[in-house]
Design a binder for these strands. Structure first.
Lengths: 347, 347
DNA sequence: GTGAAAGCGCTAACAT
DNA sequence: ATGTTAGCGCTTTCAC
């Protein structure tokens, strides 16, 4: 702002070479004499030179920036994903712009437009809860600007996606509930059609279907917050007969349910087993600790960013409809112990 | 990437006007005829024009981008702050680059350098836990690029800072513990010198000092995670005599302590009262619910961004050593009920 | 191995 | 109210 910026012309003048030589030297161009490169970079350091990204971008017609749009940043999972993406992006010389949709498709579209206008080289998106179609990314598709989805991915096929196997994980955790002796299961999920929840529900239903004895109900809520979980507990308490197993589509809502049920005098896992999804730290705080699905956020972030950047750098030949499925793990904790195994959890 | 970009020259050619007219029209310059403006913007829409930020930035010598560096994104407080900052930034046409230091000053310095090199117009920073001095921001200071600190601010005076009154809040919550009948207090905090923790400790000590009867000890840990809280509980359990009140510098660690103490067979608040800081959602999950300090993250974010942008836009005359203190509120919950008030919290 | 020169798309001072 | 023009700092093709 105050002091004028040092440009390659200043360095060129200082060293009595041409600006193009400086430009090449700064990029370690092999055509340039080693000694020249040394002198140039030394001089650049000395003069406090910093490359002007805008001139460079303007000239090169690319931004070295990738945009990330997520529903919210406040979960440890998202934070880990962002960390992984940033790590890869930085190591490849990319900048990252992050924005939150706060679960609203309108905000998501705005964010997309902002990023489009600032000409990100590509975008990474996890969809808002109420995003039902992705026409707001059309400008990107039209211009062949790559869009990669992770976690909350669109229904439509032909997109590049990074997801955990929600179906399998949900099936696994539901089977676990059945193995623990549950016969009447409730699945609590979102009324919106976010892909992860659809898949979790299908996994739940598949596990139930494989055993004719088991009854099930699916409850849909507006969101999956702690508060909503508490509300759901009240509704569940009114059911007759009472279900004996609860699979809630995320840990926050699962925790809300669990606490809500306890407040209403129910024993977990004494009367009802409860399982969540995500392995949020909260699962180890609530008593009893919550059975859940763990998956590697940082790794997911790394892979997603890596794929996008590999494509941007022309390292991957094709980039059509590839979908990567990441591993997840069932973590069994006290909230789904068999009644007979239950010792005492009045903590 | 594929289709060539539409420029103001294309629009100018289409409409038989000069590029400068188009440029002005696009900015609703008052010198331009209303009708011309209408035609230009219509044509721009039709042709799919989008402004090239790089050319514009190169020309205007500013980036309309602000950088944000925070320790971590995974708390509801930070997420709220980011939301507030983004809201203001977007409304003023600024882009936002966010990066995490993961509490390490080394990463913080790297992030700062990246942002410096990408020529952000200004930065907003909340310091890493182990940041003891801020020389890594010197390049910004040297060039008069504004740096605004929030929440975790540096010790040094002469910085623009947005903080809550940690001293007052800590004093208030400590007094509350004393009012509830505590006579032997432990304060659990970080061994690093992050400003917020220093202030909280001073507040704690001040409240204790005002009452000659009260004994106190300060415990310092590496971090304030859930796990560390659990570890601290073990140490506290070994104390003799046992303290009867605990003020932990954040909710995560406070929750860890609380749960840890319960695991060791202690009653909270029956034997020990526990208070945290931040009003994280976890405080309403743990049983008993945790007494804590609430403060308005989104508002803090808004104010911080507003201040920076006002300065960047030349709307504020001066911008020296102003520090803004935000309000915070004590939220009393079951974890600090008086023993006589305690009914039953074996949830 | 290095230099000359054009131009990326925009803005703004200066003209008209 | 609109046009002319000169660059912002960089990269890169084409020369030598």
């Amino acid at each position: 702002m105050a002091n004028r910026e040092v440009t390659i012309y200043d360095i060129a003048a200082e060293l009595n070479v041409s600006p193009s030589t400086v430009s090449r030297a700064l990029k370690n161009n092999k055509a340039i004499n080693k000694e020249t490169i040394r002198k140039v970079s030394q001089c650049a350091d000395k003069m406090g030179y910093r490359s002007n990204t805008f001139a460079s971008n303007l000239r090169k017609q690319r931004t070295k920036t990738i945009g990330i749009i997520v529903p919210r940043l406040d979960s440890s999972f998202m934070s880990a994903c962002m960390g992984g993406m940033e790590e890869v992006a930085n190591s490849e010389g990319y900048n990252v712009i992050i924005s939150q949709s706060f679960e609203q498709v309108i905000k998501e579209a705005q964010n997309a437009k902002t990023m489009f206008d600032s000409r990100v080289d590509g975008v990474i998106v996890s969809l808002a809860a109420d995003t039902k179609e992705i026409s707001h990314f059309k400008p990107f598709f039209d211009r062949d600007i790559p869009v990669v989805f992770f976690d909350r991915v669109p229904d439509q096929t032909n997109n590049v996606t990074f997801v955990i196997d929600n179906f399998k994980a949900a099936e696994q955790i539901t089977r676990h509930l059945i193995d623990q002796g549950c016969t009447y299961l409730v699945h609590v999920t979102m009324s919106n059609c976010a892909s992860v929840y659809v898949a979790r529900e299908r996994g739940f239903l598949a596990a139930v279907a494989s055993n004719a004895e088991i009854k099930q109900v699916v409850f849909r809520c507006e969101d999956l917050s702690l508060e909503t979980g508490r509300e759901m507990a009240k509704q569940i308490a009114l059911m007759n007969p009472l279900p004996d197993g609860l699979f809630v589509a995320n840990d926050m809502a699962a925790t809300g349910c669990l606490v809500g049920l306890q407040d209403l005098g129910f024993k977990v896992p004494g009367q009802i087993l409860v399982a969540g999804f995500n392995n949020d730290p909260i699962t180890t705080v609530v008593k009893p600790n919550l059975t859940t699905i763990d998956y590697p956020g940082r790794e997911a972030g790394r892979l997603t960013a890596r794929s996008l950047i590999d494509h941007l750098e022309g390292r991957t030949r094709i980039f059509v409809a590839s979908s990567v499925v990441l591993n997840s793990t069932l973590i069994v904790r006290e909230s789904t112990y068999k009644i007979s195994d239950t010792i005492h959890f009045e903590g």
